[in-house]
Structures are given as structure tokens and as C-alpha cells.
Design a protein around this nucleic acid. Structure first.
Lengths: 282, 282
DNA sequence: GTTTGACTCTCCGGTTACCGGAGGGTGGAA
DNA sequence: TTCCACCCTCCGGTAACCGGAGAGTCAAAC
């Protein structure tokens, strides 16, 4: 019913290169049915063609070999379907992100650079419910969903603007501590599943980012450049406030995010506790 | 107008990790404005933020760093636009391919495996116009366009079925000789830009592949398995014939491709010069 | 004035999914 | 027997960085 063939032949059957077949053998993903003890020659069965084709397709969809392994091992059942679905969903998300980036790139290259308003503000210390975690940069989306989901559960009728602090390492190492918080009254009772923390007060240079997060780095660039030029930066994590986010409006274009950059003091450009003015090209 | 900042700070401005910035410095893609001679500390200018953001976006679109380099060096002009367009087009093609593979994967996993008809045939030697080249596997599409384009130019009113031979290395090494050919009369005059070759005759096991090429490996797997089980394979490259391809019909679903696997002789299953029968699960 | 602690530097090795090639054994046909 | 195509196992390299070690640096605090 089935015959057995050499690597070279199996390569022609499956359109996988010999190097690739060697590799799959080495990592145990697709082992030949037999290996000659003295010569080391591999022998594949024609019955393995199906598996090879499955692997090939999954690889064409850029699925990591570890996941491919899992799919192959899963046999044809619910587990396999599940893994495939997960992967396809992730691809779909990536695709959406790609589309967003293309738009953002177009905007970046159009000459008319928008102006960024920076304002200075003193934010007193306050108490907040908080969820803390070590977060990898590209998992910030899921993390926020998780964290603010949990905060929502304990929020009750609190109507405050939520936010988060991002440690330096989050930016410099692409992984670091993130603290998502929801301000509460000083006498707020503790709640399960969240911490009760006191965020320190201080001066901040603040810029508002309107629209989806694909352009977010531009606001950071503008604000940070401004701070570097006109202010003395203070230690401590950058904060973001989310006055209008998902959960408030459906369209990302309507989101509003405030980026708060800690500074030592308000630079001598105005007088009062805060001012809104010093503009700067993004 | 512009201030100068440390790596860590620049990392926060641009959302590029310090490691990444080091790397970009090393390869000369984004060098800091100054490097302290004694300490080696890097200093970036806030004016470099724009470039960094451009790079970041291009990387998010998976553009290779070499191409990013080229885009950045191109300044904002036609050359830059051209490079971007090229990249976006390639992404679009990849996307289409991905969609095809998803469909193909679904089919592969549906239980009802189609039956593959294999027929045996003796093909006498014949003369042909030919275009020869060393081709990398994933550039086979453009190559065919090129080769058959050239063959079309010299074809005149020849109405023969074009084809191609694929060397073993094309499969085993993902790069090898491909000879695209168009059969002509034995007394055909030579023509510019193409070779005049004689293809050797012999026995072949032949299977017809209907539809787009995404599933092509399945026909190879089926035919090759069949040959491995019932035939003695003969040396020489595999041939493909393209009775119905692009240029004949618009929809890839209507394509027909014949895969011809060289064999020593017709196995003792029938009697005559060819037979159509031995079926086999794909 | 020094000490601390955060920040920075340069290697060096590892990651993923293989490719290229060197150096050398095998197998079947002539 | 001899040839030549095929096969083997290393070893190193690729892209675009990440992780960590070991060591130097900077600025503020004591």
C-alpha cells in the first residue's frame, strides 16, 4: 500500500527541500520511518506525504514550528481546530494592524505636520485601585483589556479617568512594569483582585493624543522632544490617562489619550500653575 | 531648537528599544549625532525622532532593514515613493497568497480526499523553443511570466501546448534549472532570444492538476506516491505541461496542468501504450 | 568628598528556520 | 571496478535583534 523513498524523492513528493526535511527530522517534527543504521540514509513512507503537506501549508501561513508540531501532534480533532483558529485570528489581527500602519505611514510622509499642544500641570498625589504586571510591549493591548476589565469589576459607580504608568524599562527593553490604575477616594476600601496604591504627585508636561494608537509614538516624540528642549525631566514612570477609550466610544478615531511626562518644575515660560501653549512640530 | 538626549531617553521618545537603537547604530541606519570619545555614550538629537518613526513604521510593515536604509537614504522624493510602492505591492501579493493557502488548508483538512487519476503515456522526443534559467523556488511565478512572455514573442502562429522541465535540485535545493519550452516542428528555424532544444522521449506517469497552483503539491504527492508504489522511476527532470493556463482563461480555478513523472516503463497493470485508471487517494 | 544607584558601554552567545558548503561515505549502473 | 549521483554529518552563516555578564559613568544624595 505504501512504498518507501529516499529524502531526495520525498522532497519531490512534498516540495520541501532536503535541508528542510533534515531539519524537521532533527527537531522531531517529521521523522523518516526508518534510518539505515550503517549509512544513516533516511527512508520516508509515501503515507507521510499528507503530514508533510499539512506542515508545508502551516509554514506558508508563517506558523512557528513549535505550533506546527502541536497541530500535527493534535491529530484531527477539536484541539487541532482550536489551534488553527487561534493562529488565523492572530493573522487577522496582524493584517488589521498592517492596514493601520500603512495609513499612519502615509500621514507621516505628508508634509503638513500637525502641531502638538503641550501643557504643564501639577498633579497632586492620589489613591487608586491598581493592577500591576510585567508586560511585553506587543502584548500591551491584551494586558490593558485584562487590567481594565479587572478594574471595572471593582469600580462600582466610580466615575474617574483611568490611567497607567509605564516604567522606563517598558520602553528601553520592550518589557517592564505597567501599573493600570483607577483613581479612588482617599478612604476607599480595598477590593479583591486589585491593589490600593498611592500615586505620587508632581509636575507633568502633558500632551493629548487624539485618534487611534498607531500614531501614538508621534505624540511621544513630540512631547518628549519638547520636554528635552524646554524642561528638566524628573525621575519616575511616564503616565497615560485615558479620558476617552474603548468602552466609551466605538471608533478608535474618537479616542483621547493624555501622555504625562514627569518634569522637575514648570519652565519659566509662563507664571501660573499651568499654561497651555508652547507648541512644537510633531 | 533641538536638544540632545541619551539612548534611554531617545528610546522613550521613539518607542525603539535600546538594543534596537544600538543595532541601528552598528549597521549605520540611525547613528547618534555624537558619541563621547572616552565613555562611548551616545547622544541623539530630537531632530532624529522623525527618522526613527519612519524606520519604526517600515519595520512594522516587515520591510527588511536594507530596504529601510534605502528608503531613509532616498530622502523624500520619487525614489522613496517608488520603493514604498514596491514594498506595499509585495505585501499585497503575500496577502493574496495567504488567503489562497487558508482555503487550501481547509480543503486539505476536509475528510473527503479527491481521487487522482494517473495515466501512463509514451512521449516521443520532440523539438522545442526553450528558455533556460537557474530559478529560485519562490520566484517561479515571475520566471514563468518572463519565460513564456519571451516564448510568445517568437511563437508566431504555433498552437502547441507549452511546458517546462524542473531539475531535481529545483525541488531538493529550492533552486535549480528550469527549462520552459514550446514544442515546434522538427524543421523550425532558430529564433532570437530562445534556444532550440530536443527534448528526449520516454515513458511518463501523468496526472492532471485542475485549479490554482496553491494545491499543486497535492498532485505531486499523489502522483509521486503512485509512481513510488507502482513504477520504476527513470532519471531526468519532471515535466509540466500547461494546456490551460493564464493567457487562456482568467480564473485560476480553470487552469489545467499536467505533471509528467519520468518512469522506466509502463507497469504491468494494463497492456496498451497507455491506460487511465490506477487511482489513489491524494 | 565620596558613595550610591541608575544608567551606559562592549562583548558574547542565543533565537528561528533554515541555507551553503566542506569533507567524506553509498549505491546502483556501466 | 569504477563512476557518478546521491546521501551523510558537521560547521558556520543569515536577519534582526534579545539577554546577560562584566565593567565603566554620571549625578544626586549623604
Amino acid at each position: 500500500m505504501t512504498a518507501t523513498v529516499t529524502v531526495g524523492e520525498f522532497s519531490r513528493l512534498t516540495h520541501l527541500s532536503v535541508k528542510t526535511l533534515h531539519h524537521y527530522h532533527e527537531i522531531g517534527l517529521l521523522a523518516p520511518v526508518s534510518v539505515d543504521a550503517s549509512s544513516g540514509y533516511r527512508r520516508y513512507s509515501t503515507a507521510q506525504v499528507d503530514t508533510a503537506q499539512l506542515i508545508r501549508r502551516l509554514r506558508e501561513l508563517r506558523m512557528p514550528l513549535a505550533d506546527v508540531q502541536a497541530v500535527v501532534d493534535a491529530g484531527d480533532g477539536v484541539a487541532r481546530e482550536e489551534r488553527l483558529r487561534t493562529h488565523l485570528e492572530r493573522m487577522e489581527q496582524e493584517l488589521q494592524h498592517t492596514r493601520d500602519v500603512v495609513v499612519s505611514l502615509r500621514e507621516l510622509l505628508t508634509p503638513g505636520q500637525p502641531v502638538l499642544d503641550v501643557e504643564y500641570r501639577f498633579i497632586p498625589s492620589f489613591r487608586a485601585y491598581a493592577v500591576r504586571g510585567q508586560v511585553v510591549r506587543d502584548e500591551i493591548g491584551p494586558w490593558c483589556e485584562f487590567a481594565f476589565g479587572r478594574l471595572d469589576e471593582v469600580a462600582g459607580d466610580i466615575r474617574a479617568t483611568a490611567g497607567a504608568t509605564y516604567s522606563d524599562e517598558f520602553f528601553t527593553d520592550d518589557v517592564g512594569e505597567v501599573v493600570s490604575f483607577l483613581p479612588v477616594a482617599p478612604d476607599q476600601a480595598p477590593a479583591d483582585g486589585v491593589e490600593l496604591v498611592d500615586l505620587p504627585g508632581g509636575y507633568f508636561a502633558i500632551a493629548v493624543h487624539a485618534g487611534p494608537m498607531t500614531d501614538f509614538d508621534r505624540t511621544y516624540g513630540g512631547l518628549g522632544s519638547h520636554v528635552a528642549e524646554y524642561c528638566e525631566v524628573a525621575p519616575g514612570p511616564i503616565r497615560e490617562l485615558y479620558p476617552i477609550g474603548p468602552g466609551d466610544v466605538p471608533d478608535p478615531a474618537d479616542y483621547r489619550t493624555e501622555v504625562c511626562w514627569p518634569i522637575q518644575r514648570i519652565p519659566v515660560t509662563g507664571a501660573v500653575g499651568w499654561e497651555k501653549n508652547p507648541t512644537l512640530k510633531g
